Simulated scan of single mutants.
Amino acid sequence: MTITAPAPSTAVGTADPDRGHARAAGIFYLVTFAASIPALLLIGPVLNDHNYILGAGPDTRVLWGCLLDFVNAVAGIGSAVALFPVMKRYKESLALGFVTSRTLEAAVIMIGVVSLLAVVTLRQDLAGAQGTDTGALATVGQALVDVRDWTFLFGPGTMPAISAILLGTLMYRSRRVPRFMPVMGLIGAPLLLTANILTLLGHNTQLSAFSAIATLPIAAWELSIGIYMTFKGLKPAAVNQ
């Protein structure tokens, strides 16, 4: 007589031990969207005006954008930390890699934030001051903006593809979310990496149609799991993974 081990209980009245982790991770994912999109709009003046550092720019608006980018960075780490206790059961090295990728993305984002804060500080301290070399100041300001542009390529532009490979593989194997979701991430990752490599080599731009198309599957993947985990949690763990 063969006795089959019962599946983990998910009956009514039995608490799902992973529900809290999933909800926290989902909320953090949604926060990254809620923070990063308006942040990009708010910092637009300093990114698009080459003489921003010399004029009377909307510093308060830019500072709010930098604050939202900071929130985005912290939320990215939070999403990975919240999922780690669950995902490490399936492949701890991949789960740890996911945490590391989100942490690295946050660190690169913060370099860009600090660069823009430096532009604002220099504008407030030196723009219009007697004896200021406006040409040199404009050059420094543009250099700091260029640093931020490169951080955008390597941070939120590239690291989500690495994260999608790591977490997408874990989610696909564990079947804790509908499988079409990690498939979107696993398909989108090489597309986004290709677009960014071409941008790095000068054969593409971050604002090109190809870059926009390559970004969509990753964005859909992250938004879908954010919504799913926030409102539904994770699917029950299968027996004999």
Rank of each mutant, 00 (worst) to 15 (best):
A189W: 00
S224L: 04
I227G: 09
D59S: 06
F98T: 04
P156G: 00
T199R: 11
N72V: 01
C66D: 09
V239F: 12
F70G: 15
T194M: 11
A25C: 10
Q241I: 13
A143E: 07
L137R: 07
W64T: 05
I227C: 05
S211Y: 10
F84C: 12
P85R: 11
M171C: 11
V177Q: 05
V99A: 12
S115I: 09
T169E: 04
G78F: 03
K88C: 10
I77V: 14
I225N: 09
K235A: 13
V31K: 12
S211M: 04
V145M: 06
V177R: 00
L94G: 02
L170C: 01
P190V: 02
Q241Y: 05
A11F: 01
G157Y: 11
I225V: 02
P38Y: 06
A95P: 10
T132V: 13
M159Q: 02
T103C: 00
A56P: 08
T151D: 10
V114K: 08
A11H: 06
S115E: 11
I27F: 14
T215S: 11
A118F: 10
L104V: 15
G157K: 07
L223V: 04
N48R: 13
P85W: 09
I213Q: 01
F180M: 03
G57D: 03
A209M: 13
T169A: 11
I213A: 08
T215K: 01
R89E: 10
T2L: 13
T151W: 04
V99G: 08
D133K: 06
I225A: 00
I27D: 02
P85A: 07
T134A: 15
L170G: 05
L122N: 07
K232S: 08
P8A: 14
Q142V: 08
N48K: 12
G202C: 03
A106Q: 02
R89K: 15
S224T: 07
A237Q: 10
F231S: 07
D59T: 04
V183W: 04
F33I: 01
